[in-house]
Amino acid sequence: MWNNMNNLIRRYKDIRNRKRLGNVYDGEYAFVGIGGHSLDNLYPVLGYLNVRLKYICCKSPDKIPVIENKYMGVRATADIGDILGDDNIRGVFVSAAPASHFGIAVEILRSGKSLFIEKPPCASLEELCRLIDMEKMYGSPVVVAGLQKRYSPAVSVLRKKLRGCCKATGYSLKYLTGLYPEGDALTDLFIHPLDLVCFLFGPPSIQGIDIIRSKDGGQTFMLILKHPQVTGMLELSTSYTWADGCETITVNTEKGVFVLTQMRNLVFKPRYGSVFGVPVEKIVRCSPSAVTLFSENGFVPTIANNQLYTHGYFNELKTFVDSVEGRRSENMSGLSSLTDTYRLLGDICRADKRGM
């Protein structure tokens, strides 16, 4: 009996390993950008997936020998024209300075190549609409925007629950970091939580807003957003700390409360109900209970328990490459799907200028 069981286990592991070894991508790709975010979060995923990078494009020519020494077999260049002129390049990853993304995206879309563009792909709704028009005009096969929270497995579970048996009645979201002097916090950082609530609850309108700026350069956006079927309260701030950053969304539903923390842990706390309007908890002693729907397992170091996976980086990049290579995949962050997010960003900017 034990021999049969061991044979089954070995056979299962052999099939699993052969399947993973046989999962090979044929296309050649290029990457524009070699900054900290790319090195920490994107290049490691591409390496794990064995995506064949032919070019890495950087801004500074003096980085070329350093890049080619680190990434053997890759050609480094400071001229994006080398990439756009190579007919063998099927897709281009872009993760450069946020302010340069729109201009780079325009060049790549004009070439007709597939594009993965890190957030923010552009600075305004007008620029987004221009990119959407260019995508259609030049026939770029696949365009994916790097809003990775849409691809987080915890967000996927929560979204299915909210679309299924649990109707949301309200939510609160906190996104708290330290100072961000190197860019625009609204489009570089706060685009993530704002896009997340648009993705989960639909197009919002601003019911209330207060913007607070501290003397050291920190800024806090207090928002009340009205979606088609739910109202939410948000605190987005760079007046806290990076050492203990916070990202939590609490969603109240008719059946209970969902709490998603740092994209790593999703729990559901059921509602006990009432009898003739009196809460059951005031009649009968009830022990607090919570059901874990998703949790990052720090004990087992597999890809599914890696933060690059739980935060959505793995799935967004895999979705792009799978789509380029004609494999079945769901693009959840195409440019046209970002319209509500950019309309909201524009409304916040206009409210800020009016001094609301």
Rank of each mutant, 00 (worst) to 15 (best):
G170Q: 05
G170W: 10
L173V: 05
L173P: 02
K174P: 05
Y175C: 07
Y175E: 13
L176E: 04
G178E: 02
P181Y: 06
E182N: 07
E182Y: 12
G183Q: 01
G183R: 08
L186Q: 07
L186Y: 03
T187P: 00
D188S: 12
D188A: 03
D188H: 12
D188G: 02
D188M: 06
L189C: 10
I191H: 00
H192Q: 06
H192R: 05
P193M: 08
P193G: 11
L194W: 11
D195W: 00
L196P: 07
L196Q: 04
V197G: 03
V197F: 06
C198D: 05
F199D: 14
L200N: 02
L200I: 07
F201V: 09
F201T: 01
G202V: 05
P204T: 11
P204G: 11
S205T: 08
I206V: 15
I209F: 01
D210V: 10
I211T: 12
I211V: 15
R213H: 12
S214G: 12
K215H: 13
K215Y: 12
K215Q: 08
D216S: 15
D216G: 02
G218W: 10
M222D: 14
I224T: 07
I224S: 13
I224W: 03
K226Q: 14
Q229G: 13
T231R: 11
T231F: 09
G232T: 05
L236Y: 02
T238F: 09
Y240V: 07
Y240W: 02
Y240K: 11
T241S: 15
W242A: 11
W242C: 04
A243Q: 05
D244V: 05
D244P: 03
G245N: 13
C246Y: 00
E247L: 14
E247S: 14
E247D: 09
I249Y: 02
N252V: 12
T253W: 04
T253L: 01
T253Y: 03
K255G: 09
K255S: 00
V257N: 10
F258E: 00
V259K: 11
V259Y: 03
T261G: 00
Q262W: 04
Q262L: 06
